[in-house]
Design a protein around this nucleic acid. Structure first.
Lengths: 303, 303
DNA sequence: GACGCCTCCAAGTTGGGCTTATGCTCGACC
DNA sequence: GGTCGAGCATAAGCCCAACTTGGAGGCGTC
């Protein structure tokens, strides 16, 4: 088994023409070179060098090995450089999965900053809702998954957090849920409204987890909401509310990018928070490009 | 510094998907694989593997390294195979240098046998007289030099042997010097002649070393030969003798390939021997192709 | 809930590699 | 021709690195 270290030494010997000169070039002592060459000749089973007293020459096998050595060592240095480029953020790929309202607001800024700070890196983005996005993360289809979670409504419901206990969870920001009512609604101009004031309204809910959380919040307020529609799409929610088909709650973050046509937003009480987090695998968190992207997401969340 | 051994292990891990399976494939224990991968990740400074509990996956850097690994390991195995071919006599080059009378008789048979026994090897032949051929051997311009030497005439004259004490000297055969006289010479029909019977004849000598040896032999017989001509070329010697321009001595080996036109050969006394040897460098003697060629030369000399 | 497979961790041992020190040979220079 | 310097080989010693064994923890499966 030929070792790359031996090839380096052999090449140095071939170019310098002596063990001592090679040792000086390699920064070690002459016996080290002598022993390495003896070991290499033993592992190949044939003489590689001719000691003529005056000069050190190569046998035919030695010449063949030196001829191969250049390619092998070039491949090794190329590999090292590529790895170093990835480690040094001059290259690298980050595949980001985000839920829709996150990708519309928080992600673009972070992506732009990442591209500006590390032009060599390539960041891709696809959208998926949390259950699927975490699955993609575990399957190796992405490096970072943006997800959100709601705090426990009644003390102990760790259903959301329990799935992530083997992941790196990086909190990004916490936004508030805002009530959405039709423009002509009796509460449209209120300063704020209690959630129980919407007890008899038809509801428009969001994704399954949002819907589940809405039910929990309403039940802890003493009623069960009547949910007529459910859609992930925030413009659709506004459309439905604006058409007078019901009321809704919506993350404050979504308001930044969706025009509330025909609907009015009103803070609701009790205040309900949604925590947006970035998820990744422990090993991936140590990958420079992934760590950098997480930092950029956190920075973007600060604003 | 990435080591080839690490690449082998990484590749095994990547193909099998687990440390244990890689260990079984590589014939070592699982902690060994685990430690090697840790060392590789430390040397590259970036994570290469993702431990997800269920399966072992590669990071982007890991994939890059595996991609390079195939080329590097292929280069290493190609180098090993070329070396093995040279060591196994399926390849290899032997450059032979011979003096003229050797190359005409002893060498052709040995070359043919070498080619038949080891078709992959390439043997080349150039002609040079001993002082120059040994120089070529030392300069690395050939692997084997055919030379000859005369035994000491008066006890101690190690001038020929002393130059070879750092070489491997392989005796091939010993031939006799034969007297050559014109056809009409008074001694042309003799059973044998004493060298002193030629005291008053003009002489035709050979190469410088042959000439020096002739002088020594004659002087130990009590006279100094009158040397009129000197030539390496055995047909020329015969021509000169046949023309009645003098007498000569000539290696018996040369008679096999030169027609003695116009001259007669007669054994001389005292019998003078010439030893033909193959010379090589100690390191080269251990090169399989060189050793095989030396064997073939020795075999050819037996006949 | 138990079993099996896989991984990591710790400790011990073994082997290899490097260094220092020494001897030897060869070529150069005086 | 003798001495000096350079270079290679060898031996002894030290140290690190790698492998092994044994054990613990996790996860999926039966």
């Amino acid at each position: 088994m030929i070792e790359a270290r031996h090839l380096r030494v052999l090449r140095a010997v071939a170019t310098t023409g002596s063990f001592s000169a090679a040792a000086r070039e390699l920064g070690c002592t002459q016996p080290a070179v002598s022993q390495q060459m003896k070991a290499l000749e033993q592992s190949t089973g044939t003489p590689l060098l001719i000691r003529t007293g005056r000069e050190m020459r190569l046998t035919e096998a030695g010449e063949a090995l030196v001829r191969h050595a250049s390619g092998i060592l070039a491949g090794l240095t190329a590999a090292e450089e590529e790895i170093a480029a990835i480690a040094g953020l001059r290259a690298g790929r980050v595949r980001l999965v985000s839920f829709p309202s996150g990708s519309s607001t928080l992600v673009p800024g972070a992506l732009a900053e990442m591209r500006a700070a590390h032009p060599g890196t390539r960041v891709s983005l696809v959208e998926a809702e949390p259950p699927r996005s975490v699955e993609m993360l575990r399957e190796g289809e992405c490096e970072i998954a943006l997800a959100f979670r709601y705090p426990d409504v009644r003390g102990a419901d760790p259903s959301a957090g329990a799935e992530w206990d083997d992941l790196v969870v990086r909190p990004l920001l916490t936004d508030r849920l805002i009530g959405v009512v039709p423009e002509g609604h009796r509460l449209a101009g209120a300063e704020r409204i209690g959630i129980s004031e919407l007890e008899r309204e038809p509801w428009i809910a969001g994704c399954p987890r949002c819907r589940r959380h809405l039910v929990e919040v309403c039940e802890s307020a003493g009623f069960t909401p009547r949910i007529d529609f459910a859609t992930d799409d925030y413009p659709a929610v506004f459309g439905l509310v604006g058409a007078g088909l019901g009321v809704a709650v919506m993350p404050e973050l979504a308001l930044e990018s969706v025009r509330p046509k025909g609907a009015r937003t009103v803070p609701v009480e009790p205040v309900v928070h949604r925590e947006i987090v970035a998820l990744t695998l422990p090993d991936l968190a140590r990958v420079p490009a992934v760590g950098a992207m997480l930092d950029k997401l956190a920075e973007a969340a600060q604003r």
